[in-house]
Design a protein around this nucleic acid. Sequence first.
DNA 1: CGCGACATTGAACAGCGTTCATACTCGATC
DNA 2: GATCGAGTATGAACGCTGTTCAATGTCGCG
Lengths: 202, 202
Amino acid sequence: MTAKRDALREKLIKAAEKRMREDGLPGLRARDITKDAGCALGGLYTAFGGLDELILHVNARTLERLSIEIAAAREGLDPSDALHAIAKAYARFAKKNRTLWDALFDHTLTEGADAPDWFRMRQQGVMAQVVESLAAFQPDLSGQTLQLRARTYFSAIHGIVAISLQGRFVGLADDALEPEIARFVGYILEGSVAASTRDTTP
Amino acid sequence: MTAKRDALREKLIKAAEKRMREDGLPGLRARDITKDAGCALGGLYTAFGGLDELILHVNARTLERLSIEIAAAREGLDPSDALHAIAKAYARFAKKNRTLWDALFDHTLTEGADAPDWFRMRQQGVMAQVVESLAAFQPDLSGQTLQLRARTYFSAIHGIVAISLQGRFVGLADDALEPEIARFVGYILEGSVAASTRDTTP
DNA sequence: CGCGACATTGAACAGCGTTCATACTCGATC
DNA sequence: GATCGAGTATGAACGCTGTTCAATGTCGCG
């Protein structure tokens, strides 16, 4: 009889997700969530290990949605266009799902303990697509190097989006974000091919 | 008689900074700080507006140190080397002052209220150097565009450093960070000059 | 029906940042 | 030196948080 248990878990995740979308991670209270979900305060601790674990589940769903949007954006495109599309889709997703996306990076597990496997797999679902497109763009790269380049590419885009959205350091019009990313991606891709032809031709 | 008041403020900042360096932002407790500083709990609220404001002062000092290290790194270098040096200095600073650097981005003011001017000025102290080196590298850019490009450049480096240090999405050797940044910066600079010669030559 | 294993409950707990009535400085004034 | 008063220091108390756990309820199975 895990049906009822799963039903409660689902209600809690949904309630937490709604609160998070509206009030963000800082405005997430165990008492609010359990009230919305229609269970007692303690119910959260029999359904999940604690509030942290519940947040992790919300974040996993956010990652899944992000992964789906990225997949849709790059579908059928050649490698170069795909890499551009991934970056654009990422920026748009972040803007549209601001609070949920913030939580993806603001929520750090207490104690040094790292995320469980089922969560890391969701992260992989996003990163794997970058790796795939990058592999198609630069077939000479492989394995470790590819993983590293993909992460660097993704991280850079992430940084640009993050600092732009939270308006740190400089406050500038946010409709400048997408063109700026496009230009930036262009530089990177150009640079990559230039470097690889430089390596392979004497 | 503001000498005593300032002395207490200084002791509180120092105490908070020490705690933050050791335990990070999450491990920062008002009771610990005031005990370390040798004053009562309420003293924090007569010396500062609250814990948030105290953290802001610690962060301002971190930014100042970062600014100094960046200045030292790019001193006497030509524009291209300077932009490389800034990125490298940033990565090294982040790694060496991990918890303090984390707090720079993890600490968000409660309520939508944005940071006071004296704090934004510290941020400017860092960003202005990027702007300056970028201006020297691309003299044709000016004003708004320059600010925007500088932020994009900085944000990208920040993203790479941030995701690498916190080991999100992919766990990879962290001695791969600096070479990866160097390569990345190279691509951007190449791309920039290629784009500008493309624009100015028919 | 009766039992045992599990889920649910919400008062209680320990901790947090913040407040504020109270007590105390200590330089200015006569 | 005595007296005053404006600014400062104090720490118990407040309201909030996530978490726990004894008591209560639920329900499938022999």
